[in-house]
Structures are given as C-alpha cells and as structure tokens.
Nucleic acid binder design. Structure first.
Lengths: 288, 288
DNA sequence: TATGGATTGGAATTATTATTTCATATTCCC
DNA sequence: GGGAATATGAAATAATAATTCCAATCCATA
C-alpha cells in the first residue's frame, strides 16, 4: 500500500519548501493522527530536525509509528530521511544576520572569481538596509509625506548615480496616478521646466557626494521660487540640506566604487506609497 | 582523572560562544588528535550538530573514541551533551535572522503610520537579497560576464519598472569606460538604434512579469540579428528566457504592489563591474 | 447493524550509534 | 636510553532509537 503510493508519486520532496507545499496541499485528505503530526511538523520544524522519533511523537501526542507512517505517506522511506529535509533547512538558512554579512564580506574580499563581486554588492546592500532601518527618523518621514501629499505636482530631481532612484519614483508615482514631473536633461530645457513650479508644488531631490552641480543649482533656483523640497542625501553638510524643508541622511555602503541604492530605494518607495495612501485617506475624508 | 578535571572546572560551557572561547584558550595544550578534532569542530559546527560520532570522527580523520575524549576534556560527560551545544546554536541563531524579518513584516502589516510602509520595503529588499544570494548560479555569472566582456558595444534594454536598473547599468558602464547604449524610447527611434547592433555586440535585457511588450519585441528582433543576449527576468517561462544566451531568474519580493529592485541591482552591478575587471585583466594579458 | 477496509496503539524486533575497554604507541622526564 | 605517564587505535559492548508487526478500534457503506 505505502509501496503503491511511493511508486505513484516518485518525486519525494527534497527541500523544505516543497515539503511544506506538499503537506499543505494534502492536508484535507490526511487521516486524523497523521494530520496532527503534519501540523506539528510545520509548526515546530526545529523539533523535527533535532528530536528523536519517540520524543517528537510524544510532543505531538501521537505514537512513533504514526510519525513513520506520516513520513512514508510523503514518499520517504522512513522518519530518518524525512528528518534530513528538516536538518538541511537549518544548514542552509545561513547563520545569523551578522554572521551572514561577515561571511559575505569575507568571501567578497578573499574569494576568487566574479562570485566575490556579487557577494560584495549583496553585503553592501544588506548593510545599507540595516543602517537605514536603524537610523530613519519616523517624524521626518511623516513630515515629508505630509508635505508631498499636499503638492499639486511632485517634481523629481536627480542626476547621475541618483537618477535610477528618481526614475523609479516617477514610475511609481505615475502608477499611483499622482501628478509628477521628472526633471531630465535630454533637451536641455531643465531651467524652463523648473520655472513652472510654484509653491503649491513640491520637489523630491536626491544627491550624494560628490554632488552633481546641476542638481544643486536646480535645487537652489527651485527653492528660491518658494517650492518646498524634500531631500535625500548623505550628510548634514550636503549643500542639498540647506535648501530642503525636510531632509534624510542615508548612508549607503559601497563596493568596488559603486554605491548600493537599496536603502535610498526603500526610502523613496516609502515616500511614494506613503503619499499615495495619504492622498487616498484625505480624499475619503473630504468626501465624507 | 577526567573526574578531577571535571571537578576543577565546574563550569561546563553551556553556550557555543563560551565553548568556542574555551577551546581557543586551551588550543595550545591539547594533544595532537584532540586538537585536530577541536579545529574541525570550530570549522564545521554544523557537522557536529547533525552528524553521528562515527561520521564526524571519520570526516575529521580521528577515531570516535577521540571525539568522546575531546568532549570529556571540556567537561561534558560524553559526545551527546557536547552535541547539544552545537544544536542549540543552530536553534538560536536561526531565530535571530528570522525574527528580524518577521518583526519587520509584522510591523509592516500591523503597524500604524508610515513607518510600517518603510519597514515593509526594507523587509522586501532584505528577503530578495537573501534569496538571490542563495540561488544565484556562479557558472551563469561567469558565462554572462565572459559574453559581455567580448562585446564591442553593450546595449541595455529595459522599460518601466526595470528601467531604473538599466539606467544604473548605463551609468556604471560609462564610469568604467565601457562602450554602451541605453535603448530609450524618448524619440521613438528604438528600432533604428537596434538595427546598428551586430553579433560582435551584446545585450543586457531586463524584464519582469507583466513583461513590457516593447522589451520583448525589441529583444526578439535584436536576437534575430544574431546579437547575444543576457537576460534578467523572473521565471523560466519568461518570454525573455527563450531569446537569451544566458539568463538569470531573480525572485524579487514585493510590497504594496511595488517590487523591490535590490536583488536585481546587486546582480546588475556584479555584471557591470565583472565586465570591467575582465576587460582590464585581458587588456593586461594582451600587452604582456 | 453487520462487514470490510483503513487507521491507530503499543509492544517486539532490528538497526544504529555512543561509549567503554584494552592493547599499543608516543612523549616526556629522569 | 629507560620507564612512567599520557595519548591513540580498534574492536567489544551497552544504550538508544527506528522500524515492524499485529491486535484493537474506528469509520463508512450496504
């Protein structure tokens, strides 16, 4: 019988996620006690990895034999091979956050081949996310979102290395049906574009050291027109900070001379989606 | 004898860090084979956690009895209780990384205010980086870099949500003095631009579901001209995959409907910098 | 409500694995 | 260089754990 079943689905789950999916999939059709141990297994995977058949069975409130039948139903030939999957999961889930980063950095520095470059960029991105998650000031976030939510048009200003962030902001704002204008330099008409901005609008400006002179100039002239600016930059001495109504200091780690954009992207998206949410809730209130 | 020793230092290491320190401390004074297993234990803690005394001893090149003596020297009463410490470490360390992300996600879902949006984006980015770090195939990376390094001009093709990545690639390639062409649609001259590409060039194409039709069309026509394509996409069923000489599957987590770009960015930067390095080393060889 | 099949509990059996023991080798000190 | 103390290897033994088996129970169906 269990032989028949094993022959029918030959593909035994080799990794935890597949196993999990299989269990969830069959959940309905499992006998009571088997279902009981199945639920226990998904809730306490560590216990399965480390325990003995007897101890696990006891914790789950079933007999050891039931545990083995459970394994066999899934196509394993016994508890031991089921347990392997749970152990593999623990092995692969690389280490704690810090250990993982250290390992990545070590590989990035010592390692040969191009994998080490990749590890370096992943480490840089993780570090940046970690840092911004610790240092971001909630009040600044709220202020910036309020300011932007009131704007008629949001201008997005960034050059060079910061430009990808600006283009994603513009894309997202567009998706959310929020009027926006990306200040691009293709036709050299930036000055004219900027001239349209009024104090009822707002600007998101992004610039990191070495600050692109064009960004700074444009930020200056737009702020002189009384348009409020939200700045994302990398230091309190940044020239952008002085023009800005609200500004964020984002420390992006770099690797091989190129800075990660992960933290900036996360912040940029939060501002964008935050504005979207705020507009929607304010809209509702107005109607009410 | 071992009793004496056990009496002398009553405090048996209960956690991994203490144990590690103890081993490092005594390293000098340990007999040869014991030192051998000690080194193995610190280098392969996962093996100690999951292996059997016999299998571990074999991997470390000692007898099982030596392993037990090692445990006893440290004050444990046998291999089994030593193993507990290594298992405990896996249990705890795992929870730390998971807890982090789960805490973030929990805050993102339950939390009030805009901070929760931000946490959501950070969690999505972290998850994506984590995933790609696990799944990226080194051989693909090498292949893609070789292919791109040989190209006369690298064309970069991406629209909409993937466009920010393309623009960062173009920026970085420019910085590295690698000839490249970003295929933009401003003037509607894409077809003409593409027509210049020859089999001596190469393309980096990026597209995620729902695939921008323009990207697919352009990828098709450029591949029909015999230009090799490196694709970054999100599934093996992606239409991009069929045109590509090398392709990467990147699973980006999303939040609030916007996908993180962190993993894609890290990969894109690795390709770019990898090509830069490869060119430089090949250039040197040529001179020599 | 009787009957067959599936499911379950619990003990018996088999296997695997840790530990002990003892003979042999090595090291260190006199 | 000789001898005690220490360390090591290998196999025997004890302990522990996985698996099997069979009787009891449950459940659906006629």
């Amino acid at each position: 019988m269990s032989l028949d079943r094993a022959t029918m689905d030959e593909r035994v789950p080799r990794d935890f996620e597949t196993l999990r999916a299989t269990i969830l999939d069959r959940r309905e059709s499992l006998p009571k006690r088997i279902a009981q141990i199945a639920a226990y297994a998904l809730d306490n995977p560590d216990d399965i990895a480390f325990g003995t058949a007897a101890s696990i069975a006891a914790s789950a409130g079933v007999q050891p034999s039931t545990l083995i039948r459970f394994a066999q139903q899934l196509g394993f030939d016994g508890f031991t091979s089921l347990q392997q999957v749970f152990r593999e999961r623990l092995r692969e889930r690389n280490s704690s956050y810090d250990e993982r980063l250290q390992a990545l950095r070590a590989k990035a520095e010592g390692g040969a081949g191009h994998r080490s470059i990749f590890d370096g960029f992943v480490a840089a991105a993780s570090t940046s996310l970690n840092d911004i998650s610790r240092t971001l000031d909630d009040a600044h976030l709220e202020d910036a979102i309020s300011l932007l939510a009131k704007a008629e048009t949001i201008y997005v200003l960034a050059k060079r290395r910061s430009y990808p962030v600006a283009s994603y902001i513009a894309y997202a704002l567009g998706k959310l049906k929020i009027r926006n204008q990306l200040i691009e330099s293709a036709a050299g008409l930036n000055a004219e574009m900027i001239a349209f901005a009024t104090p009822a609008d707002a600007v998101i400006a992004i610039s990191f050291s070495p600050y692109a002179p064009a960004t700074i100039d444009e930020a200056r002239s737009i702020s002189e027109q009384g348009v409020p600016i939200v700045a994302i930059t990398d230091s309190s001495f940044s020239p952008l900070a002085q023009f800005a109504r609200v500004w964020f200091e984002v420390a992006e780690a770099d690797f091989a001379g190129f800075r990660s954009l992960s933290a900036t992207m996360a912040l940029a998206m939060s501002l964008t989606v935050g504005v979207g949410e705020k507009r929607r809730s304010t809209g509702k209130k107005r109607k009410a």
